[in-house]
């Protein structure tokens, strides 16, 4: 089995037809499903949140079989993830895609779990502290994309579980939990 760093690649990755968009509908759907799972698994393992369609991405080519995905194929696979609510386009031109290997609701649940585990109820934390502080080290929240984190925090704020507020200077952004 081929590996990409520590990540084990599936068998289809070495099969050239999977790098070309299949014209037959049933085959195409099966192909898209396999690619969706591969992209989500890879992004979760490598903690990748943003995929640029015009940038080099390890999954978009396989030098061993001298194959790479066309722009059309890349857009098709990521659009399928967007349809499932597992990704979002970051621009109108569909050049950058935000991958949600956890849905926003799942990220929000992880934040609540983290706050309870570390006894941070009724305490103040900075946004940066949540994503790169000592407390979050070793958890899934460590290294979370700021956009994803803010989306999850706003969802929790909407539910009344926390309040997002500004400090004395403009770059201060904090969260007060109330669970």
């Amino acid at each position: 089995m081929q590996k990409l760093g520590e990540f084990k690649l599936p068998n289809f990755f070495n099969y050239p037809p999977y790098f070309t968009l299949q014209p037959v509908r049933e085959t195409r759907e099966k192909q898209i499903q396999l690619w969706k799972e591969l992209i989500i698994d890879f992004c979760r393992t490598q903690k990748i949140f943003v995929i640029g369609l015009e940038e080099d991405f390890p999954l978009f080519s396989n030098p061993a079989i001298e194959r790479s995905l066309s722009y059309e194929a890349r857009e098709a696979f990521l659009s399928a993830l967007v349809s499932d609510g597992r990704a979002e386009w970051m621009d109108k031109g569909h050049r950058k895609c935000l991958v949600l290997w956890h849905r926003i609701q799942d990220w929000a649940d992880l934040i609540v779990k983290f706050v309870k585990e570390y006894g941070l109820e009724d305490s103040v934390m900075t946004v940066e502290e949540i994503r790169s502080g000592t407390e979050s080290r070793g958890t899934e929240l460590h290294g979370i994309d700021r956009t994803v984190l803010m989306r999850a925090l706003k969802l929790l704020e909407h539910k009344g579980k926390l309040a997002i507020f500004k400090g004395t200077s403009a770059d201060d952004e904090g969260v007060k939990f109330s669970l």
Binding site: V124, A163, F165, G167, G174, K176, F177
Partner: peptide
Amino acid sequence: KKPKITEVDKAILS
């Protein structure tokens, strides 16, 4: 009901 932000909270954040 959102949690109330006090001056102490702002000071801690700073």
